[in-house]
Design a binder for these strands. Structure first.
Lengths: 293, 293
DNA sequence: GTGGTATTATAAAATATTTTGATAACAACA
DNA sequence: TGTTGTTATCAAAATATTTTATAATACCAC
């Protein structure tokens, strides 16, 4: 069976229109008709109901079942393509959230250069949540990910290497600036400058606001710690971050005194189905040795 | 890309011999050569190293990576075939371990017959461990499974409906026969008659022997509770089972007094990727209503 | 070394499959 | 009633796959 047919079919379940699918794949419309007929013959079942009366196309249960598997098959296939391409070019694509990249990557970069590995590494940036999805989709080989619970996914190998508490950062001019420690609850009337939603920081933050029953005023969101810190320095708002971010004048770090606070856990992660090349194994070893403990 | 090529390649990674693969698929040998060449062109990488000097064939890292995905793709494909076939014939294939079948199935059979569903159900028998694997491989649509921990798998939906403690069963003539309760530790010198290894009973049993630091004498293993019970009645050995097995004269049930004993948990299980037909949904509802609580 | 065996590759021919172009069939809608 | 937007049919063309026949290579036994 040709996987092209599955791709046509999968697209058909979305578009629900033969002609549109043909257009998308840049083929003629009968190609789609015959492809679907081929699949229907192969699986011995009607996959779509062409209801011309109601001007609509519905997917039969058999079709839905096939679509389910088609998605997985096509994903596996593109994953294999991506992985092998990286393998051949001896390129390692490494997902890095910006904070982790800033703090941890310089620590390993020197060693990677010494081992002549640095030029083989392509970094992909993004929040930990997006990177985890991307990793599962095969967009990269490995990632350093942040999380607030130890990572545990059926298809991912995760190896925790560090933990950091979260702190509150406020401007020198903020009323709380001369305090060393605060309770989260005291911040209920403050304005916040935070990360975008695909960062785990928000999961931790939301946990605390939920626990303290308040809706925080978030005045700005950014992907960039430096921007967040500058806004905090200018007293636009306060923020909630780990201390692995760069230090900044005019900003004061406050400890949180709440019980059972979330921690920022950093892990090295890759797919269980992914076979490590010698170079990837080397990278893993270096990361282990440098980052752990 | 044709999935046939993946099947050829996947077999090649096992056989490590082009001619043998050709034989297995009943095609001529150049078919395999060209299929592998096609794949190598498609993925832009060498997949196998044909080392005629050392009379061997090795799979390159790219090849291993592809093989990994090929297995998943082929599994998905055959799963789709099986599921759709059941769908079309409106057949539900239901995995049942024999003990569960004996105890629970009669309870739902009458209701299934009333709903004219009974004739659509094909039961597949086997130990819970094998059935779980078979379920994941797509050999059946649903299963009633036993386990000693709540079932939690990424690809399976599990719904617990009952729990039973394990007991020790001994012959009337056994020295312990007039006791009501024993500690597992007291059985360290007894002979055991047990289930085969693919039954969860053994997981529970092993847990207890490990905890009590002894190697049990297992004199016989069987798939059939009736045989096990008959052997216990004849004092060939004692056994470790739940009380959902048929009662038997000449056999005495002893409670275990150990703390934190494993329990026999029964759950209704199906794949998360599996789309339920109306008939399957009906079966699920009947099982729920009858078995739960 | 020579001949035999087992293995994989190559090239051309034979088959099989897929896509196309042209057109039909159908229903909705103005 | 004609026009538009659909999907299906069919034969021809274009592609892709498999086979047949044979070559190339290395091992092994004598």
């Amino acid at each position: 069976m040709n996987t092209k047919d599955l791709a046509y079919f999968q697209e058909l379940t979305i578009q629900k229109n033969f002609s549109k699918v043909a257009e998308i794949f840049e083929v003629r419309q009968p190609t789609i008709t015959t492809a679907i007929q081929r699949l229907e013959a192969e699986f011995g079942a009607q996959l779509v109901i062409r209801d011309r009366v109601h001007h609509s196309l519905t997917i039969t249960p058999s079709g839905q079942q096939l679509a389910e598997h088609a998605i997985r098959i096509l994903r596996d296939l593109s994953m294999a393509h991506q992985e092998i391409q990286n393998l051949v070019q001896n390129q390692i694509s490494l997902g890095l959230p910006p904070i982790i990249e800033n703090y941890y990557f310089p620590k390993i970069a020197a060693k990677l250069k010494a081992k002549r590995l640095l030029r083989n590494i392509i970094t992909v940036e993004g929040g930990s949540v997006d990177l985890r999805k991307g990793l599962l989709a095969g967009n990269m080989d490995m990632a350093l990910l942040g999380s607030i619970e130890p990572l545990s996914y059926a298809n991912l190998m995760a190896d925790e290497f560090d933990r950091h508490p979260f702190y509150i950062f406020v401007s020198k001019n903020h009323p709380l600036a001369d305090r060393k420690r605060v309770f989260f609850n005291e911040l209920r009337h403050d304005d916040f400058v935070l990360f975008e939603n695909s960062f785990v920081h928000n999961q931790a933050f939301n946990k605390l606001t939920r626990r303290n029953h308040f809706r925080p005023d978030v005045v700005f969101r950014s992907n960039d710690t430096h921007i967040i810190m500058k806004l905090v320095a200018q007293n636009v708002g306060i923020t909630y971050l780990t201390d692995i971010v760069d230090h900044q004048d005019n900003v004061v770090r406050l400890e949180l005194m709440d019980e059972e606070q979330p921690e920022f856990i950093t892990s090295i992660v890759y797919r269980t189905s992914h076979i490590l090349t010698p170079a990837q194994l080397q990278l893993l070893t270096i990361m282990h040795a440098t980052l752990k403990g």
